[in-house]
Amino acid sequence: MATVQTDMVDPQFKVGMKFSDCKDFRSVVREQFIKRNRDVVFVRNEAFKLKAVCADPDCPWEIYAFKMQREKTLQGNPIVKSSWLSAKYMETLKSNPSWPVSLFMETVEKDYNTRVSRQQVYWAKERALRQIEGIYTEQNSRIWDYCEELRKTNP
């Protein structure tokens, strides 16, 4: 994990890299884009959560940073999204829907050597549980179709 001090001459992004504040994060991101002769767009620019993307539609690069709990720093995370987390841990949540958010966070940190925010994990869990509930609801609604098909094929 990087320290709060960031090399402004040649910034290298790493998962878990920390920034002292939003201004520092924006400066480092701009520096990277200037060096690569590309434009950057900050699509989410809040005090506790930032997202920067490449302005070129053919460029898939994006990075997220969020305020760390109980710290005065931001942590960058170029790959982890709540949608990715919900998909990755869907089976675990299916078998343990009451999995505590704190344990979910610890598991992600251990599995991928990156820290995620409580909000990311909370929304990932909510998304997964809604999807799981939808699967069960859909299956239950189709039971009548199945019964009707049985009656037709096996009178």
Rank of each mutant, 00 (worst) to 15 (best):
M68G: 04
I132F: 02
E46N: 07
C59V: 02
S102L: 09
Q32S: 10
R44M: 15
M90V: 12
M105C: 13
N96I: 09
W144C: 11
W84D: 06
V43F: 05
W84F: 15
Q69T: 02
S117K: 00
R127L: 14
R30H: 12
Y112L: 04
L103F: 09
M68S: 05
P97N: 02
R127N: 10
Q131A: 12
L129I: 08
Q139K: 08
T137C: 11
R36C: 11
D58Q: 15
Y112S: 00
Q131V: 08
L74W: 02
L85I: 08
R70M: 10
D58R: 07
K72L: 07
V40C: 15
W123S: 04
L129V: 04
D56R: 01
Q139T: 05
I143Q: 14
S95I: 14
S95E: 13
L74M: 12
E31G: 09
E126N: 08
Y64G: 06
V41I: 13
E126K: 14
W99R: 05
A128R: 01
F48L: 01
K72T: 05
Y89C: 10
S95G: 15
V40R: 13
T114A: 11
Y112R: 00
S86F: 04
A52E: 07
D39H: 13
T114W: 06
K49H: 08
A55H: 09
R130K: 13
Y112T: 00
R70K: 08
A87Y: 13
F33A: 07
V101Y: 01
R38S: 12
P100L: 14
P57I: 07
T114C: 13
S102A: 09
V121S: 03
E91H: 11
F66I: 03
F33E: 11
R127P: 00
S82W: 13
A65V: 02
R142K: 15
Q32C: 14
G134K: 02
R142G: 10
N77H: 03
R115Q: 00
Y64A: 06
E109V: 06
I132P: 00
A87F: 15
V121N: 03
C59D: 15
I79G: 05
R36L: 13
F42R: 03
S86P: 06
R118M: 02
W84A: 05
E91Q: 08
D56G: 03
Q69G: 02
Q75T: 01
F42G: 06
G76R: 03
K67I: 00
V43N: 05
P60L: 10
W61A: 06
Q119T: 08
L50D: 01
T73R: 04
A65H: 01
Q131F: 06
P100T: 09
A128C: 08
I143H: 09
D145L: 10
Y89F: 15
R118N: 00
E126F: 04
S95W: 14
E71C: 05
R30M: 12
